[in-house]
Design a protein around this nucleic acid. Sequence first.
DNA 1: ACCGGTTTCGTACGCCGTACGAACGAGCGA
DNA 2: TCGCTCGTTCGTACGGCGTACGAAACCGGT
Lengths: 222, 222
Amino acid sequence: MRNQPQVASDAGLSKQRVVAEAIRLADREGVDGLSMRRLAGELGAGAMSLYHYVANKDELLDAMIDVVFEEIELPPEDTDWQSAMRQRAVSARQVLARHPWALGLMESRTSPGPANIRHHEAVLACLRRAGFPILMATHAYWVLDSYVYGFALQEAGLPFDTAEELAAMAEDVFLPQLPPEEFPYLNESAGALVAAGQGPPEEFIFGLDLVLDALGRLRPSA
Amino acid sequence: MRNQPQVASDAGLSKQRVVAEAIRLADREGVDGLSMRRLAGELGAGAMSLYHYVANKDELLDAMIDVVFEEIELPPEDTDWQSAMRQRAVSARQVLARHPWALGLMESRTSPGPANIRHHEAVLACLRRAGFPILMATHAYWVLDSYVYGFALQEAGLPFDTAEELAAMAEDVFLPQLPPEEFPYLNESAGALVAAGQGPPEEFIFGLDLVLDALGRLRPSA
DNA sequence: ACCGGTTTCGTACGCCGTACGAACGAGCGA
DNA sequence: TCGCTCGTTCGTACGGCGTACGAAACCGGT
């Protein structure tokens, strides 16, 4: 029962290589396209070989999620708390947009991996050092993470990624499907978004700063 | 190609009955336990009979999600906007906590159902009538929904539902797994939550009011 | 040359979604 | 009453899934 080798060479499997290839496959084909046989094929191995590195598919999925968490930048320690939180949130949104399947997996799997825990700890540390009392720091964490995850979840459901694509889709898909007399406000809103050239990144920053601002107002002693 | 009967009687299938039973099954066993054969068995029918009411499993999942959206209360029209938004958000959290599988499904399926669209329209209408300019109402919608979905997603990942369960789990599971010297802030935070008797509902309201408050500050002309 | 452990994987079982087409049954014109 | 039509039910089968099981291949140490 030795540990797995911690570096992945070109030939030879390892837990890291299996998980990394699984992530690549899920990014490319969606999580439904990720099967043990397919993944093994991608690695040039037989399906059952994978089970030497992961106990079962669930453990593989857990490991994939934790690698995703590793990709999210920790809050930097050399700036004010608002900049640190903003930077971490922006990084989280980027990572989750890159691996949209990760969000769908978070429901269902309950036990957080080590990277997830390390992240939690670092964020709480940043807030506490900034002067938030214990309970308030916990509240702040919940609010921020809820916003980030929820935004990423909504973004994953969008059929477009940029403001330009939004404009194109609005013309072709939304308006024909949403009669203005029945849904006046939706039409109005879609039009305004198109006119303003707002895409998901700008929208994200708006809400993020709103929340950070509100949290700043709760911080004692300014 | 007549329409399906719109009422479900005890005997006889219908799209409504199929979807309703599918939801009950997913609530009970999780979305992984929902298979066409199983669902058909639950309805006392053969597996292939279901395909007269849904084109395939994906369409079934879409229909399930839209029924979930129907369960969420629309913002009432006879109060101020903040109360209306709070009421709708609380309802959404309750519904999503009742059907946690729905969140995991939202990623992957992109086209919103009619109930989802109606909901969107009603919320935008409420915000616009409260005096928010178009773009600001759209921003507000994104922030609120991101918070609600994200909170529900995090809540779905928790292995406990109430403050009491949290206290019990903290003692038995978290603390042994999180050495205080390595994760001082997590331990501190868990302890504070237990001491304060905070459960998910209270936590949700805190962030919700924080966001509603911040949005109120952005509303023109007070 | 042999051995014990590590790593690979061929085969098989019981699930899954669903294509195909046959069986069924109620309503209806003759 | 017969036979026809057409909406509905479902038996069978196919390819793919996760993975239990055990055999084979490989490898460092003697």
